[in-house]
Design a protein around this nucleic acid. Structure first.
Lengths: 204, 204
DNA sequence: ATCTTTGTTAACCAAATGGTTAAACTATAC
DNA sequence: GTATAGTTTAACCATTTGGTTAACAAAGAT
């Protein structure tokens, strides 16, 4: 085997592909740019991943499997709904601040090819909302929460946490903030969002 | 002048371009497909719009100027914050149900080229949030609302209203709904979202 | 009638792009 | 050392794609 300096061309390719695909999308990405970015010959991309589609799928799956555990945190642990919302909000926002292209990439490509998520869902059941819904129903019946549907509550949680990252250019425009100011807004949301949600659903 | 049957080739092109660009994005769209879609020769696209970039910008601006008035509704009328939220939520959701590709298209392309919104903002000041913020401050000081920042509240309103459309494939997956079920969920949100927001911020 | 302007088309072109190939190189097995 | 199997590269290829051109058609203007 010929393994010169870096020991793992395959991972270098995946890393470069991740950068290019996540910023430019499937259609905007160029195989040559990925090769340059990885510092290797373009033919290597095909040697390791056959073609653009398969390389893209490798990147997409790796991105999705990085995000899914974060979502499952809120769905499947045993703390109260209230604690879950607090934990999820701070953790998720911190997580995305480290991977800023992730939400937009996934959403964009899921819209481009909606069948993709069907395959993923079939293989691993990456998102199971049943337990969360049951817990909401229980806490509603116990009088801890106002009448609330689990589906809609989860949509609200996702919306409030994810959307600001996806709509960053729009938000920067109307708040007239620069990148630093935007980050400050997001930082505030780590606590504000959970209070906003809890205020709304808590029975008092 | 040569005007045969339809009287307005230019608008046919724009309509076809809208369909193709909004579903496939700038990079995924093909000039030939737009031409076919409009039922005309590809050269006509260049005759009327010079090149792909300019045709795209025409579509983008027309899409944005369709959306902006909807946003300004909430920002600049004289009703109470509470009424504004209710009106905005029902109106906005109804509006997007008629233009389902709009939010995703705008967000996707704004992320691809963030400078775009700077140009738009400079030309027309499409989004002015100042009045809304002042009104929030006032109602907070009057004791109608809990301590709330206008910026963050507006981000929350946008998030809860727009995100579900943008993340449709994801939401369909974890709620296990088909298109019909998804529409039912959205329909519920016309009232649920505003109650959710108002519950959270109203002083009581 | 014919000249001019505007609109429309088919054919064409150069560049970009995903993908292939055949040869060369490297490390290990024998 | 030499065979062998995996790795890497430069050059190449076919197709796609945005864009151009030159000829043609239709409708006023004169």
């Amino acid at each position: 085997m010929a393994r010169t300096k870096d020991e793992n061309t395959e991972e270098q390719i995946l890393e470069a592909a991740k950068n290019v695909f996540q910023t430019k999308g499937m259609d905007g990405a160029r195989m040559q740019e990925i090769a340059d970015n990885a510092g290797i010959n373009k033919a290597m991309l095909h040697y390791y991943y056959r073609n653009k589609q398969l390389l893209f799928e490798a990147v997409f799956k790796s991105a999705f499997s990085l995000l899914a555990p974060q979502l499952n945190k809120i769905l499947n642990d045993d703390s109260s709904i209230e604690d879950k919302i607090r934990n999820f909000t701070t953790n998720y926002i911190s997580f995305i601040m480290k991977h800023p292209y992730l939400p937009n990439f996934i959403i964009q490509e899921l819209n481009r090819n909606p069948d993709f998520i069907i395959t993923i869902q079939k293989n691993n059941t990456l998102l199971n909302i049943e337990k969360f819904k049951a817990q909401v129903d229980l806490e509603v019946s116990q009088g801890n929460l106002k009448p609330t549907k689990g589906d809609q509550l989860f949509i609200n949680i996702l919306s409030l946490n994810i959307f600001p990252f996806v709509a960053k250019p729009l938000i920067k425009a109307f708040t007239k903030e620069d990148d630093k100011g935007f980050e400050r807004l997001i930082e505030q949301r780590k606590t504000e969002v959970s209070e906003f949600i809890i205020n709304s659903i808590k029975q008092h």
